[in-house]
Design a binder for these strands. Structure first.
Lengths: 192, 192
DNA sequence: CTGTCAAGACGATACGTCTCGTCTTGCGAT
DNA sequence: ATCGCAAGACGAGACGTATCGTCTTGACAG
């Protein structure tokens, strides 16, 4: 979302102030009530400075929240697939359930739902790495013989996170360890 | 969303006109660009008549789209679980992928993401029945011995639809038969 | 001297409330 | 049974507010 073009004379201070203001305001008021004018005011920045470098409220918000999140990390590899998956799934579930980051995550989600271009960025910089590292762990498990040779690891990774996302997004039930474990049990067993 | 209280004197004609206009406008312009004023204008109705009976744009849209959809239907029961699941999942995937109803479904989804009260309605009138009928089919499969006795059917149903929802919502890949089949393969195998 | 900056004026929408005068409807009196 | 009337729902749209995205200004930095 930041311009790819040479932002030669761009003020880094303003950029940071804008992203920080956006992050704070989203946490305080949520995405719907957030306005560009409020971001500009809190950042001590002219509106034009925002419009010059971003295309929309969603772009600013996504930019401000992405990179925030420790997501590219590889999954642990203790040798037992189910254990490692349980670990990540429990963590992910807890993170999504956490009230502190609920507002931010919801904001990012709405932004992504509304603008395909943002969805693209979100997928590449956020979701992609997470899915890839899960896929890698599954591949290593397959080499260890814990997963059937013909299993579709891509789909398996999606199914795992999809389950959490589904429940979280639509408020279908609690995102606790029990749920994470149940999903892992089902998928891990399906992969054998 | 419609008042539970005695809508004794409520004009059914206006109600229908509003819901129809909302449905059309969502399909034409999408949720974001939809305005209450446009709905009122197309429906030939005063704005107040909308505000009298609905609380928000989202409420009108959800009301206009819910009930539209043939969702409570029980799953087929041919005796083979995987076959039946494949059937529903393929159908669901195709439906979500269909351009004609994309706009509507996206609109409903955004509305639900934005307002917890709408999410409640959506879950009860739309999602609940779908999940329930999947769960029922799984229960019948369990009785037939095709599913492990200790399997969590609730979670399994969520995982199935969650996978489609995840891919659809975030645009992770094509929603084709191959994907539906892969998910079913994984879950059905996990349930044994 | 060219481009970014903060500040904010500007026209364009859309919001949600309100007021107006008209219609519709339920119900009690006839 | 029919009628008359009050309550209130209706279509229309004016109103003030909020936010949008653009545009203008003058300062100043490279």
């Amino acid at each position: 979302m930041t311009d790819k073009k040479p932002p030669v004379r761009r003020s880094e201070k303003s950029r940071q102030a804008i992203l920080t203001a956006a992050r704070e305001l989203v946490a305080e008021y949520g995405f719907a009530k957030l306005t560009i004018e409020a971001i500009a005011a809190r950042a001590g920045v002219g509106k034009q400075t925002i419009y010059r470098w971003w295309t929309s409220k969603g772009a600013v918000v996504l930019d401000s929240l992405i990179g925030d999140t420790p997501n590219g990390a590889a999954l642990p590899d203790t040798g037992d697939l189910a254990t490692d998956l349980r670990e990540v799934m429990r963590l992910t579930a807890a993170e999504m359930a956490s009230p502190e980051i609920q507002a931010s995550t919801r904001a990012m989600n709405v932004a992504v739902q509304t603008d395909p271009a943002l969805a693209e960025v979100y997928r590449e910089r956020y979701l992609g790495p997470a899915l890839a590292s899960a896929r890698d762990r599954l591949a290593s498990a397959r080499e260890a013989g814990q997963v059937a040779a013909d299993a579709d690891l891509e789909v398996a990774a999606e199914v795992l996170f999809g389950a959490i996302y589904y429940r979280w997004s639509l408020g279908l039930g609690p995102l606790d360890d029990a749920y994470a474990d149940a999903v892992v049990r089902l998928v891990a067993s399906g992969l054998r």
